[in-house]
Design a protein around this nucleic acid. Structure first.
Lengths: 142, 142
DNA sequence: TTACGTGCAAAATATTTGCAAGAAG
DNA sequence: CTTCTTGCAAATATTTTGCACGTAA
């Protein structure tokens, strides 16, 4: 039994109506490693069920966001979506080759507590994206 | 003599044509503390010179970006622009009240070097934005 | 049965582009 | 004069909304 069935059961508990569209959209997000844009989610769902409408995708993403099932990530120009996870995780993105490196939250924890101590600021670091250049591309550039 | 006149002189050196539009756009960015969107820049310039077109604003921002005079910041949905500065600086943004706190680069430097050491990743941290809740709003929430 | 969700089409928003006229150097 | 820049209008991309119909519970 896949993780997303638990999620769907959970939603029913919370009084959210379960529709095939919502299930397919959750499925699409769940089955992907990368973070998808609204349109990419739309296309994946459309492959299974051509009648689906892009407006439904946007409305469902909004709903899932409010329910804290997914969250939005803004990389440059495009908005992407991914499942919320227990432990926040982060990404390094190489601007040269596009490679992404996943980061444990531990590496950002010191910054988080420094911000709290110095400014009383409670950072919401669910998913930070840090751009730069990966080791390989730095070598290639030399 | 204001800083932006030096910039304009600098541009002429670099073979960039100086037009009133470009000067007014640079002016608008320069005279603001906050980071403006393309449309806000457009409105400010339009107040001085109604004939200006939004397409010119976009094209000029693109040009200034390529010349490394300004850089783009993506906060949530909107793209904002600010002058490049010698020392990178960063912002904490309170999601409750919208307040922004400026951060010295020093506070992010340890993270930067940790990423370099552990992953060989050279982070481009010209302007990081960290969202969260400021001290005041945390109190109000209690 | 009733409230909520969906598809559709149109609107709103943000950004880009082709082209002819205008201005910088 | 020549090349680059601008204004205009139209195109494109992304996201939102009103409304009538359909469906989950």
């Amino acid at each position: 039994m896949s993780h997303h069935h638990n999620l769907m059961a959970d939603l029913r508990q919370r009084g959210v109506r379960l529709t095939p569209q919502r299930e397919m959209i959750l499925d699409a997000i769940h089955h992907e490693d990368e973070h998808l844009t609204a349109d990419e989610i739309y296309q994946r769902v459309q492959a299974r069920s051509p009648a689906i409408n892009i407006a439904t995708v946007y409305r469902t993403l909004e709903l899932f966001k409010d329910l804290h099932i997914i969250h939005e990530i803004n990389l440059g120009d495009c908005t992407r979506y991914e499942l919320c996870q227990d432990e926040p995780h982060h990404h390094l993105v190489c601007q040269a080759c596009g490679a992404t490196i996943s980061l444990d939250h531990a590496i950002l924890a010191p910054l988080e507590s420094k911000l709290k101590k110095q400014f009383g600021f409670k950072a919401h670091m669910e998913h930070m994206v840090i751009y730069g250049q990966c080791a390989k591309c730095q070598q290639d550039a030399e």
